[in-house]
């Protein structure tokens, strides 16, 4: 009796019916798998689909080897360099496109094209550009009197090449998100600043930047998460089992390698749990810090 008063019967019927597919799907494909991955990380496969519980063995193995530390270092290096580069270039492009100039649609379309290209093709194109003998980039470098670079085979350089491709691929997407944030800033703010004699840089730092911080925050959080999951470009551009791979492989690549090439799904799961913990901590820290710099 109590319930039928509180809830409309139609709402109950349609409500459960409407959420049913997504609720069941999310449970089977996401919630339960997330729990299973954690369980798997404490197991080792013993062949024929059987698994044995091995306690913390996978984690001990992980932290005692040098592979994971190198990979952590690679992943952080990738994120620390690529995230600021993506944010700065995307914001710059967005600010430039937020002016009243001709040809905006064409610029916007061109900047977005890398976003709609499949990453395996993108990586292949860049492999060709980076080719140390016949690549366009080294040709141009040599033409202007510089030395060619072993972009993919030099272990010290390879991560930079990965970062270049990562940044190049991500600018268009984030530019669009920032551009829509910029377009929400009322035009009269700029007009009154102009009357006060503010120059373009003053306007940028006193109006544009503070007012775009909500969109900027979104871009930073999602770009950090994306950077820590970097996989495609490394998988496609660097030869496996080389010194270069050792110095570029990310946690996501290591997860793929151990789970699906070396077929040690327990160990792979431990790696992905570590990745999850890192991403959750970083996202948590950003949520905490947002009050300090984001203006709502």
């Amino acid at each position: 009796m109590h319930h039928s008063k509180k809830y409309n019967k139609q709402h109950l019927f349609w409500g459960y019916l409407f959420i049913a597919p997504t609720a069941i799907g999310l449970f089977l494909l996401n919630i339960w798998p997330a729990i299973q991955t954690v369980i798997l990380s404490f197991q080792r496969s013993s062949g024929f689909g059987n698994t044995v519980f091995v306690g913390l063995d996978n984690y001990k193995k992980m932290f005692s080897g040098s592979e994971i530390w190198q990979s952590l270092f690679n992943t952080f290096k990738y994120a620390i360099v690529s995230v600021p580069a993506i944010v700065v270039f995307s914001l710059l492009a967005a600010v430039l496109m937020n002016q009243k100039i001709k040809g905006l649609t064409i610029y916007r379309t061109i900047y977005f094209i890398p976003v709609v290209a499949a990453p395996s093709a993108v990586a292949m194109i860049w492999r060709w550009l980076f080719n140390s003998e016949y690549g366009l980039i080294n040709f141009v470098l040599e033409k202007i009197g510089l030395n060619g670079v072993q972009w993919m085979t030099n272990p010290k350089i390879a991560i930079i090449s990965i970062i270049i491709v990562g940044v190049w691929s991500a600018i268009g997407y984030n530019m669009i998100l920032l551009l829509s944030g910029l377009q929400e800033i009322p035009k009269d703010y700029y007009e009154s600043a102009e009357i006060d004699g503010a120059g373009p840089f003053q306007k940028f730092f006193s109006i544009t930047l503070p007012l775009v911080t909500p969109s900027l925050f979104f871009v930073v959080v999602t770009t950090v998460i994306g950077a820590f999951q970097v996989f495609d470009v490394i998988f496609m551009m660097i030869e496996p089992s080389t010194e270069s791979m050792l110095h570029t492989q990310s946690l996501a690549y290591l997860f793929y390698k151990h789970s699906f090439i070396l077929n040690d799904k327990g160990y792979g799961s431990a790696i992905v749990v570590l990745l999850l913990v890192i991403i959750l901590i970083l996202t948590g820290i950003q949520m905490k810090l947002q009050k300090r710099w984001v203006n709502y």
């Binding site: 609720a23 798998p33 997330a34 990745l275």
Partner: peptide, 29 residues
């Protein structure tokens, strides 16, 4: 719509969004 469990369900949606997708892959496979 209003029905019991709605917020719990939406909580599940939010949690899924914050988790990197690699965590689901092995069990999905």
């Amino acid at each position: 719509l209003k029905f019991p469990g709605r917020d719990l369900f939406f909580g599940m949606v939010l949690v899924q969004m914050m988790i990197p997708s690699q965590i689901f892959i092995t069990p999905q496979y």
